[in-house]
Design a protein around this nucleic acid. Structure first.
Lengths: 329, 329
DNA sequence: TCTGTATGTGTAATCGGTTACATAAAAGAG
DNA sequence: CTCTTTTATGTAACCGATTACACATACAGA
């Protein structure tokens, strides 16, 4: 690997001049610049980011903490972040916290130790204190905070919408799956749905699904139909759980959507391939990722955003686990 | 952030001694060690990885290149790699190449510039020349090479198995979906299936699916049934494509598995939730990730493995897109 | 007691960049 | 033709670790 010294020697100048030429700082004579550019090209010189980072105390790396890379919602978020960051020359270190606090802390430590220039966290842990004294900017993704900029979808409206659509399509004994207690967004969805169901004066039961992971989803689904065999409408906490519910409903021979309507949350790519294709509340995951990246970049560029909160709209995606709306023409 | 100097000052020794104490190199007096440990604890000192990496010319970071983080097969691989690496104190930089060569090259450059200590690549690009002159060890994942250690599933056997199961369950007009030409593993599966079908003397057609991504899968599915409306057995190139085929089959009102059998490849978590649950050839993705990590770690520890190749077995997962086998009792 | 080895620690060079500061030449002002 | 300002470049310190080397002391064997 060629170093800046090699370039300097080849171009017949000092390393300082090479550095200035590369970073467009200070004065460099036109002719000198040409010599340097040529030397760089010939040696195929690429500056050592580590050395740079040591002096500057910041790298070009961005930390991204995801709670569970296996839930397709998060890769989608990650793509949004990645694409936007790419445009600005930043790279991602993705840390998969696996919904465990110690793993999350491990990654934060790694990020610090590697001089990341900023951090985006979609962690699901309730405890946020470890984010208080960071030396680099932070954006929270898929969750809110009073102390940090954040990006999330309008969970409350999403819950409301899910309930409204289910009611207007004729479900009368609804089961509401409540996501993990520590997960803000899940709680907001829940609140939205509850409010709407109260308003509409529809009977509903509540069951808590304490995780979003695949291997648990099946279990929740079974429990759901044991506890509430007569339910005719399920508002799932996310699409993974909805898929499990749908699967279990088939197993029990229920007709969907005639006997049972199901509505999910997220709209992951797979939902369209379920049978029947899953009606769901869409979160614009990719966009959320991009917005989070934008917020972080603004902070990196020196703006202080305090607790700026960006909330993106959700949308009902009508597929076929819900019935056609009864028109009152 | 406390530095090694602060620790040295607090413990009343030189930085060299602190460094020796931390890395267990050279002699350090028992009492001195205690002083240092205490200073470290009190200052909550964590060594700066960047400085370390600059001197050592290697960090604790591992590069991982994935072709498409949205295809659930790859997060599963990534988890395997991550978990194993975690056990050894290494961290991952995940690069999503998006099936584009230039993005892949970008990431390789980033990895070099950040002194990664090793690289695992599950890239789909046929061109491997850019892996020739790396200064750190490499493991290829989900693909083979004559020049580098690699880990993959037994694609040939997988293809054979898929064909065999479909035939023995009564399909007579099989359509074989052939994955992207540049993708070795896809080609091996294809070859395995072709050989088996020839052997069994069963009629089959071939259609090429030039990508594995979600947004294309639907298109391939439609094309499939336009070209071969009478097919009664589909061997899909992976589970994502299989899901799309299943979806399209439903749309066309085909009875599954009575009229049409479908068999996928990968066994991603979602496959069990499809309707009917998808029969598929399982690749042990998580294990593959772990094995790749192991191979890399062995190289990092100084073993030279040349082109060691690890091939993991695949397995037919019988669910309900295939019929019960006709017993010849 | 003398010598050789094992133990313990500090000084300073090093990794590959960036930049403060010094210096010199060129350009512009009067 | 001076004097000031702008342009151009080099020297050396610095970022925070690691380690070669020098040196000092302790301990062992003869």
């Amino acid at each position: 690997m060629a170093t800046i010294k090699d370039v300097a020697k080849k171009a017949g100048v000092s390393v300082a001049t090479v550095s200035r030429a590369m970073n467009d700082k200070g004065y460099v004579h036109e002719n000198t610049r040409k010599l340097i550019d040529e030397a760089i090209r010939e040696l195929n010189y690429k500056p050592n980011e580590v050395a740079r980072s040591l002096y500057n105390k910041k790298s070009r790396l961005i930390g991204l903490i995801l709670p569970d890379i296996r839930n397709p919602f998060f890769p989608e978020l990650a793509r949004g972040v990645e694409d936007k960051m790419q445009e600005h020359g930043f790279r991602l270190i993705i840390g998969n916290a696996d919904e465990q606090l110690d793993k999350e802390l491990d990654y934060i430590e790694t990020f610090k130790q590697n001089n990341v220039i900023g951090l985006i966290s979609a962690s699901t842990n309730a405890v946020l204190t470890h984010y208080e004294k960071l030396s680099f900017p932070l954006v929270l993704l898929d969750r809110t905070s009073d102390h940090h900029p954040s990006v999330q979808a309008d969970g409350y409206e999403g819950g409301r919408l899910a309930a409204k659509e289910l009611v207007s399509r004729g479900s009368t004994r609804i089961t509401l799956l409540k996501g993990p207690v520590e997960l803000q967004t899940a709680q907001e969805r829940f609140k939205g749905a509850v409010d709407e169901l109260f308003n509409a004066n529809v009977h509903f039961d509540v069951m808590t699904t304490a995780s979003f992971a695949f291997h648990n989803a099946e279990y929740w689904a079974k429990e759901l139909f044991e506890k509430y065999p007569d339910t005719d409408g399920v508002i799932a906490s996310n699409d993974v759980v909805a898929a499990a519910v749908l699967h279990e409903a088939h197993r029990l021979g229920k007709k969907i959507p005639e006997q049972l309507q199901i509505i999910g949350f997220d709209d992951i790519p797979f939902s369209q391939f379920l049978y029947p294709p899953l009606s769901t509340i869409r979160q614009p995951a990719y966009e959320m990722g991009r917005e989070a990246a934008k917020l972080l970049i603004r902070q990196i560029n020196g703006e202080t955003l305090e607790a700026k909160r960006i909330q993106l709209p959700v949308q009902f995606i009508e597929r076929q686990t819900t019935r056609k709306e009864e028109r009152n023409d």
